[in-house]
């Protein structure tokens, strides 16, 4: 993580630069689909990619993550979802 001073101006500048993001670790996904229905921005989708576990994995289909972490919280497989919220 880059170091920056905690003065308010700088923090705001930082927030403008970095957007919230979500990563689905496809090799851990069991395709229960709960993250898809709980995403308020509908950016997650079921794909037809089959992973090593034999499940059609979920993918991040669009930009627009707001970092609400709904997908992280509801995902039943620890480690399958990472959300970064600046």
């Amino acid at each position: 993580m880059p170091k920056y001073s905690m003065s308010e101006d700088n923090v705001e500048e930082k927030q403008e630069k970095e957007q919230p993001s979500v990563i689905i670790h496809e090799e851990l996904c069991k395709a229960c689909g709960l993250c898809i229905i709980h995403c308020p921005k509908d950016i997650l989708e079921a794909s037809d990619k089959i992973n090593e576990l034999g499940y059609p994995t979920t993918v991040v289909a669009k930009d627009g993550c707001i970092g609400c972490a709904n997908c992280y919280l509801i995902c039943p497989e620890p480690g399958a979802v990472t959300v970064k919220k600046p």
Partner: peptide, 18 residues
């Protein structure tokens, strides 16, 4: 392995995580 043995959608995994 890296994945738990829980079925897809099982609440155990969610609870373990939190």
């Amino acid at each position: 392995q890296k994945t738990t043995h829980y079925c897809p959608g099982c609440g155990h995994g969610t609870l373990n995580k939190i």
